[in-house]
């Protein structure tokens, strides 16, 4: 296997008297979509923030492209859980702000055109001049997605981006992200607790035990053939085995496996499973 684009090497988050997660290792290859699944309190968001450079681990390092992540970078875009749009800017201005940060030499006309193209890609051509308060929750998150993709990052980081949306909107946005990621061969890392979302999008799914002392208990390889479409996903052979395995983990094993790892557990190589065969 080639060297992964992002390599998480032995990171932990410790407070006095509390270890949230400890000695976490994993990699994300170029063009790969990795999901991290686990319950609240296992430090998922902290891990994503460390990858984004917004937070630093207590121990261990994260390498991106072979270099240690020391801070935020335009190479790693973040789609936030709340849309995190600036309410005083229109959809177009929000995207143009991001573009202006990346392309400091572009004039406003060029920024506007690029912002419009990015919004058209997510189907928001008609809502460009609207402020976030005039947009629905799903549309706001679409702007957030357009903003992240517009700067053409090397990696996309997503922190439960659809958790605040209703089921129908969530479904269409998942397909949107799936399409955008596939089209651009984007490397992506996403946190979720929606099992179907993980199966639809991810090539590998990291299952984390409950905190404290959370760890990556196992790595589920998604062998369902691509492209995966939401409408037919649940008819694909192997889907139910995959889903049941993850559900079982979330409901019982995330709890029973929590705490001290078994003796044969190697944090650098958590066991890989292929429930879908």
């Amino acid at each position: 296997m080639s060297k992964p684009y992002v390599s998480v090497e032995g990171i932990s988050r410790k407070f006095p008297g509390l270890t949230v997660f400890d000695n976490v290792w994993f990699g994300v290859n170029r063009g790969e979509f990795v999901c991290l699944v686990g319950h609240s309190g296992c430090g998922k968001t902290t891990i994503l923030n460390i990858l984004a450079g917004l937070d630093a681990p207590s121990e261990g390092v994260v390498l991106a492209d072979g270099r240690e992540i020391a801070g935020p970078s335009l190479e790693r875009a973040v789609i936030f859980q709340g849309h995190a749009l600036m309410p005083w800017l229109t959809a177009e201005q929000n995207v143009a702000f991001a573009l202006g940060c990346k392309h400091k030499d572009w004039d406003s006309g060029r920024l506007r055109d690029a912002a419009r193209r990015a919004l058209e890609k997510v189907g928001l051509g008609a809502a460009m001049g609207k402020k976030p308060s005039e947009l629905s929750g799903g549309m706001k998150q679409r702007v957030g997605i357009a903003r992240a993709f517009a700067i053409d990052p090397k990696m996309m980081l997503m922190d439960e981006p659809f958790s605040a949306l209703d089921a129908l909107t969530r479904g269409s946005l998942q397909e949107e992200v799936s399409r955008l990621v596939t089209e651009s061969g984007q490397t992506a890392f996403m946190i979720t607790h929606d099992v179907d979302e993980a199966i639809l999008l991810a090539d590998r799914i990291l299952l984390m035990t409950n905190g404290p002392m959370a760890r990556v208990a196992e790595v589920v390889i998604n062998t369902l053939p691509k492209p995966r479409v939401r409408a037919t996903l649940h008819h694909q052979p192997g889907y139910h085995e995959l889903r049941d395995h993850i559900m079982d983990f979330l409901i019982t094993r995330s709890r029973t496996l929590a705490g001290t790892a078994p003796g044969d557990y190697d944090p650098r190589n958590p066991p890989e499973v292929r429930p879908a065969g």
Partner: peptide, 27 residues
């Protein structure tokens, strides 16, 4: 915090963050 995080991940820099994010937010 989230707007500041957006600015940070976009490497907006101190002045751009001050005038394009903090000032309109606090206006």
């Amino acid at each position: 915090r989230e707007w500041l995080n957006v600015a940070r991940t976009l490497e907006a820099g101190t002045w751009r963050t001050a005038f394009r994010v903090i000032l309109p937010a606090a206006a």
